[in-house]
Structures are given as C-alpha cells and as structure tokens.
Computed example of a mutant assay.
Amino acid sequence: MKTIPISSEYIKLDQFLKLADCVSTGGMAKALLQEEAVKVNGEPENRRGRKLYPGDTITVEDCGTFQVVRGEE
C-alpha cells in the first residue's frame, strides 16, 4: 500500500487520482469513476468531488491501493 501525503484537511477524489499517478487528466478521472473501478474504504465510489481525509484507503483497479496521510503543513 502506497501512502499519499496531503497538507490540507482533505483532498477531492479526482485530485487524488492525479496525485497518485492513476490518471493524468480530470477527464480520465471521470471516465475511471464511471467504470466503477475505484473503491474508497472498501465501497465503490463514482463522485469526483468525494472528500478524502487522512486514514482513508483508496483502491484503484489496475493502479493499486493507497492511503491518505497527513503531510507537512
């Protein structure tokens, strides 16, 4: 499991997917979410604006499993 540090209170799912190098554009993130290829804390998620907080676990089909952690402020 890879960790993705964030410096803010939360990160939106589409931004997270780009930060984790699973997609390179917002359009790709939208398509990936429509395919139901993303799970947040074990539950399927298709909302690009879903807020992710430190401790959340995200699984992306064909990309890996990640955990959001608190980064440097």
Rank of each mutant, 00 (worst) to 15 (best):
P44V: 06
N46F: 04
L32E: 13
R48F: 02
V38Q: 06
P5D: 09
D56C: 03
G64S: 09
T65M: 06
V40M: 01
G55D: 13
G71K: 07
G55H: 08
P44R: 13
T25H: 13
A37M: 10
C22V: 14
K18P: 11
N41G: 00
V40T: 04
A37E: 15
K39V: 00
E43S: 07
K39M: 00
I11G: 09
T3H: 06
F66I: 03
E61G: 01
E61I: 01
T65P: 04
V60E: 13
A20N: 11
S8G: 13
D21W: 03
G71L: 04
R47S: 11
A29H: 07
T59K: 03
Q67S: 14
S7W: 02
P44I: 03
K12E: 15
L52F: 06
E36I: 00
E73I: 00
T65A: 11
I6Q: 12
Q34R: 14
D56K: 02
G49W: 02
Q34S: 14
G42D: 14
P5S: 07
T25P: 09
K12Y: 08
Y10M: 02
Y53N: 10
T3F: 05
A29E: 09
G27T: 10
E43T: 08
G27N: 13
V23N: 12
K51W: 02
E45Y: 03
L32H: 10
T57E: 01
A29D: 12
Y10F: 15
G42Q: 10
G26I: 09
I11P: 09
F16N: 12
G49M: 05
